[in-house]
Each structure stands twice: as C-alpha cells, then as structure tokens.
Design a protein around this nucleic acid. Structure first.
Lengths: 213, 213
DNA sequence: ATCGCTATCTATAAGCG
DNA sequence: TCGCTTATAGATAGCGA
C-alpha cells in the first residue's frame, strides 16, 4: 500500500517509523473492531510502543473474560504440551516466556557442554535462571500494571461523570420543587376559572382558555 | 475490499461469516506481525472464535527490551504499592518468588550432591525449574487478574450508576418542561388576578392570594 | 505531531471447483 | 470445508503544509 512497496524490516528513519506506527496502529485497531462486529468474536489487542505506551483494543466489557480465557487456555495448553511432549507450531515464531526460558536453559546447557558441568557451572546456571525469572516477572508486572492503570483511569473518569450528573440532578430537583408550588397554583387557577364562569360576560372578555397537559 | 462494500454489522450467513473470519483473522495476524517488525513495537493479539478457540499473535519478548524496561521496575513496584492496597498474597510465604526459586534450586542441588549430577539430572533440574516458573507465573496472573476483575467490577458498577442517573436527569428534565408550561399559566393567573380585581366584591369571595417564590 | 491528498499496493468478498 | 481467481474496496507511503 502506498506509493512504494515496503520491505518487511524495521523502518530505520525514526520519523517515518513513527508515522507508520500511528497509521498502522489505527488500521489494526479498526480491523480488530471490524472483526469483532462482522464475525461476532472476541478480540483483545495490546500494542506497546517503544516508549512503553500501551494502546489497546478489546471487545466491549469482556476484557476480563478474554484475559481469563487466555489464562486458562494457556494453562491447559501447557499441561497438554507437558504430557504430549511436542511443541505447537507457531506461525509467527513467537514464544511465551516459559518457552523462552526453557529454550534459554537448553541453549545454556548446550553451550556449556553438559557433561563438563561442575559446581561453579551450576551456580552460574542457577543465577542465570534467577535473572530470567526476575525479568519475566518484571515484564509481567509491567504489562498487568498498564492494564490496571488503564482501568483506574476509566474508573476515575466515570467517577467524575457521576459527580457532574449528581450536580445536574440536584439542580433539576429544585425545578421539581418549583413544579410542586406551581401545581398548587394550577389548582387555584382552575378553581378561579370555575369561579370566573359565574362572572358576567362583559367581565370575562380578556380571559383566555389555558390548557395544561 | 472485495466485490461488494460490506456493512459494519454481524454477517448473518454462518458460512460467509466463517470464511470472513478466517480471512480477516489471518489478515489481522499478518498486519500485527508487520507492525512489530516495521515499527519495532510489541504486540499481543488474542482472538477467540465463537467456539472458544484461541488464535493469538504476540511478540516474543526480546531480552534487550526487557532489560531496557528494568529501569522502570522500581517505578512499577511503587505504583503497585500505591494502587493496590495490601501486599500480594503468596502461596509461598513472604519470600519473593525469585528468592524462592533460588532456594529451591539450591535445595535441589544440595539434595542431589552436585558432583554426581549428570545429563539426566540436569534435564530433571531444567524441568523442575520450568514447573516452578509456571507456578509462579500462574499465581502471579491469578493475583493480578483479581485486581483487574475488581476494577472491572467497579467500572461496571459506576457505569450502571451513571445510567440510572441519566434516567433520573431525563425524568427531571420533563419536570422542567412542565415547569415552563406552568410558568405560562402563572403569568395568565396573575393577569387574571388583576382582571379579577375589577370585579365586584361578592364575586371575589373565594379567591385567595397565591405567592410563588 | 497531525492532516489531507492520491498513487499504489493489499486485503478480501464473491464465485467456482 | 478449503484453495484459487478476480474485481474492488480499503489501507497506506510519500509528500506538502
């Protein structure tokens, strides 16, 4: 799309990259939305800019359900994998952190020629694993915190709106009070019309009928 | 795209919907992948078909990126404390999972007399570590999900309240309209009082003064 | 950073095996 | 359900303000 074909590689020019990011991000969001509507499915999309800003799209109130489903789905999948002992092929070559860890361990072990490992090596391995776990944990926290922050913002927003509406209701309530008073007036006015009917015609000239719904 | 323009509404024909889902899903995955590569960002995409099958795409977390994120770790932790009252419950006591992992590794290593470890033992160790990581990950997810769910509930609650208040405002607004009408009545009523003052005393007997604030 | 433009490229709806 | 084809709608790169 666009004037020239684009290679599938990182756009090196920072400016172009940013512009492209903005456009494509919106495109992706739009398409995600279309998918949910057209095909009646649930979609959750999270995009983390290089600055760590989160852009997300997800099906209406169901993010919880989506993440929930995702969690149980993954757990199930991992258990299955554990017993079947084979990797599920992934079209885009992405890996979940656990897979990554497993692979790193494997790599580490391979690199160091297993049979020669001694106490020192194991100590090294231990610390590598420690680091990996810590990093995974951090990343996980960050991701979840983004979600939490987002929800927190939404909550604040809604609270503000609620407050505003409270005021509005209060104002409107005053009108209601006035309404009551005027209703009393109305009753008296109607009584007056009846009374007035007793008056002679010449005195009735300027009085019009008033209808109240 | 395609032969005809498509309305943004659920495709009713089941077959077309399925075909469309398949095509658009792949398109979305592809575009997500392009975005990650071209713009060098992280993307996570989850699609749940109506049958509950998960299709997902996500960036493999690169170590570099995670390391870069480490700086914000302290901040994140701080945020966590700030937003989430109380500490995160842990099945493993007060130790942080990473410490615990280290200890478990140590224990495992001690128990098995390091120097006798061979390939098989290391393989076992690797898998134990994998399991531990998984447990930690799952537990962490559960805890965070509770927070998210809680916030989600709060959000829903506030939305409901907002809706209720909306209705209230609407009702009150009707009163405001009635108020207007009655104000007209009031004007006429006052006019009538003036007119009525012209009438003779015997006809004025039943009319009282009415004050309106 | 964003907006508009438009030439081009891509995704995909419809149709056919 | 799938794959392939084709005409078109849609996305977007490049550029200017």
């Amino acid at each position: 799309m666009g004037r020239g074909k684009v290679e599938l590689k990182r756009i090196e020019d920072k400016s172009s990259r940013q512009v492209s990011f903005s456009k494509r991000r919106n495109g992706l969001m739009k398409k995600s939305h279309e998918l949910t509507v057209l095909c009646d499915v649930d979609v959750a999309l999270f995009i983390f800019s290089s600055k760590g800003i989160l852009y997300e799209f997800s099906t209406g109130e169901s993010m919880t359900r989506i993440l929930d489903s995702y969690q149980s789905y993954k757990e199930t999948e991992e258990l299955t994998r554990k017993y079947i002992h084979g990797k599920l092929p992934s079209e885009y070559g992405d890996m979940c952190p656990a897979d990554e860890l497993a692979e790193m361990i494997q790599r580490h072990v391979d690199e160091n020629n297993i049979k020669k490992l001694d106490t020192t090596d194991l100590y090294q391995l231990e610390h590598n694993l420690y680091d990996i776990l810590r990093l995974v944990k951090i990343r996980k926290t960050q991701v979840m915190m983004e979600v939490v922050k987002d929800l927190q913002n939404k909550e604040m927003q809604l609270k503000k709106e609620k407050k505003t509406m409270m005021n509005e209701v209060k104002v409107k309530s005053n009108f209601q009070l006035k309404l009551q008073k005027l209703n009393e007036v109305k009753v008296k006015f109607e009584w007056l019309q009846i009374t007035e009917a007793k008056l002679d015609d010449t005195n009735n000239d300027g009085v019009m009928d008033v209808e109240i719904a």
